[in-house]
Design a protein around this nucleic acid. Structure first.
Length: 347
DNA sequence: AACCCGGGGAA
DNA sequence: TTCCCAGGGTT
């Protein structure tokens, strides 16, 4: 029998680590192995570019420097610090997970991958990242960067929109996994972000271009393969900006559908209020999966009795521009309040 | 396994 | 416009 040499790819992981030593991005959470800070940064930067979330991360750590502080905070304040970041269930889950750590782990962040995985809002990627960076866990933190880098290195056309992609590319990652998995995981993120970019990758500067099959085949643009297309559907919303003497009415959304637990204007009004409608403004707002058309009616209430009745019947919260800064609003409503503030100051 | 959930920047 | 980003939860 003729023996065929089993191909080994460990040198790729070594090259990547060498590159990372000299080219690691200087980020605030790179100076620490505090699992709390690493956990927070992993959640903040889920589906979020570094530049977009950096201020949120810094402000969040400054206000909630440790698990106990976060666990004891009000959920609405956590949501306030998440304002504008999107995917608001992350804020709700991050708060609950902090309480989980206090109650189930006596305030000490769990060290084991399987335990970290039990935290609300922590999936396989985040558990692997925290485990490897903070506790020398040997698990690749497979994310969009891994899909892209590995599919190009091996010229692998496995569909990354397939639900088995995570397990598939986890196995590929193990082929090149070095001993220092924490640095390896972060190196993959930096390589994917700065060199092996989705469009116009800088292959000439890539430390792995000699090992990259897609590059050698001149087929970089064909990887990764992603078949599933995201289609945004149209959705119309109506809000009534019910105000009187600089005060206006809001309520808190449920924790389902969009904008979980954020605040909003009344979506309906009583018949008595209809005569107080002064104008309407239509705002178009694009979400990833929805094209929103929001009609916001300006309702200036001239009757103290009707104002009070409407509040009492619906348990609305009375606030003003100043008070609204303590609540988290969806972007388009935040903008509307800002415009109202400007107009109101002029009057 | 399929679908849902934000917002912003790059091309 | 389109794509996609340090993904996870729900059904």
């Amino acid at each position: 029998m003729e023996k065929t040499a089993t191909p080994t790819f460990k040198h790729i992981g070594s090259k990547l680590l060498n590159w990372y030593q000299k080219n690691a991005r200087d980020l605030p959470f790179r100076q620490t192995k505090d699992p709390y800070k690493i956990w927070i940064c992993e959640i903040v930067f889920q589906q979020t570019r570094i530049n977009q979330g950096l201020n949120h991360y810094n402000n969040f750590i400054k206000r909630f420097p440790d698990v106990k502080t976060l666990a004891e905070a009000e959920e609405n304040e956590v949501l306030l610090y998440w304002k504008g970041l999107g995917y608001y269930s992350r804020a709700i889950n991050i708060h609950r997970a902090a309480q989980q750590i206090m109650n189930d782990y006596h305030g000490t962040f769990p060290h084991e991958y399987e335990e970290i995985l039990k935290l609300k809002g922590v999936g396989k990627y985040t558990a692997a990242a925290v485990s490897s960076i903070c506790f020398d866990g040997k698990i690749p933190a497979v994310d969009g960067n891994f899909y892209r880098v590995l599919s190009r290195i091996f010229a692998d056309d496995f569909d990354i929109s397939n639900s088995r992609a995570f397990n598939y590319f986890s196995e590929l990652a193990h082929l090149i996994l070095p001993d220092n998995v924490g640095d390896f995981n972060q190196a993959m993120m930096d390589l994917g972000s700065e060199i092996c970019k989705p469009k116009n990758p800088l292959c000439g500067e890539c430390p792995l271009h000699e090992d990259c099959l897609a590059f050698s085949l001149n087929k970089i643009s064909e990887f990764p393969v992603k078949t599933k297309k995201v289609k945004a559907e149209d959705l119309s919303l109506k809000y009534y900006f019910v105000h009187r003497n600089g005060k206006f009415l809001i309520q808190q959304r449920k924790d389902d559908f969009i904008w979980k637990k954020l605040f909003e204007f009344p979506p309906v009004i009583s018949d008595e209020l209809i005569s107080f409608i002064k104008s309407v403004k239509t705002v178009n707002h694009k979400l990833t999966h929805k094209n929103l058309s929001i009609e916001i009616f300006n309702v200036e209430v001239d009757s103290e009795d009707i104002w009070k009745d409407f509040i009492a019947e619906n348990n609305f919260i009375v606030t003003d521009v100043e008070g609204s800064h303590e609540r988290s609003f969806p972007k388009p409503l935040e903008n509307y309040i800002q415009n109202y503030d400007t107009a109101y100051r002029i009057l």
